[in-house]
């Protein structure tokens, strides 16, 4: 049992346990905080896969951006003093059946397939080659992504803005 295995299993356990917390938590704020640990665990898995740039991007964008957005959404849409009386979940039986089938199939296929893998390569920095790829092979998706982000930004502002005096 070397250190790589120990660290991997520790972070895999952190990721999965906090993901379970996201899905099964009764309080929406606790779910959001569990999501924080899931994102950190996933970033650690990226580091173990020697994807340093993606790991940093994960922390910056997911933890610093999306999670903050989610927490803002929670704060703005839940009444502060209201305890959630009603059960906050539904369709439990079909969900368990579907998810059990999906998980069983996926894990069965993944563990029985003999994946052709490359040799275990030594670590190399990835930021520079990723930048080169974005500017050469993937330049069209890169520009499309920038346009998409602009459209999403403007669209989000227009959708969320409260219109004065007018109700649809």
């Amino acid at each position: 049992m070397n250190w790589y295995n120990i660290v991997f299993y520790a972070f895999a356990a952190l990721t999965i346990i906090s993901a379970i917390g996201v899905v099964f938590s009764r309080s929406i704020l606790y779910a959001a905080f569990s999501l924080l640990f899931t994102f950190f665990g996933v970033a650690a898995l990226y580091v173990l896969l020697s994807a340093d740039f993606i790991a940093i991007t994960q922390i910056l964008l997911y933890v610093g951006g999306i999670l903050v957005l989610i927490i803002f959404g929670i704060m703005l849409t839940s009444r502060a003093n209201k305890v959630e009386v009603k059960r906050s979940t539904f369709q439990l039986v079909p969900a368990v059946l579907v998810v059990g089938a999906i998980a069983g199939t996926l894990i069965g296929v993944l563990t029985t397939t003999n994946w052709p893998t490359a040799n275990f390569l030594p670590y190399e920095e990835t930021a520079r080659p990723i930048g080169a790829l974005l500017m050469t092979q993937f330049v069209l998706p890169f520009e499309l992504a920038s346009i998409l982000l602009l459209v999403a930004l403007i669209g989000a502002v227009i959708i969320a803005r409260r219109e004065k005096g007018k109700r649809a």
Partner: peptide
């Protein structure tokens, strides 16, 4: 496992 948990969350 994460994918299955996500599907479960979306459904329920």
């Amino acid at each position: 496992i994460m994918f299955s948990l996500g599907i479960y969350g979306v459904i329920t």
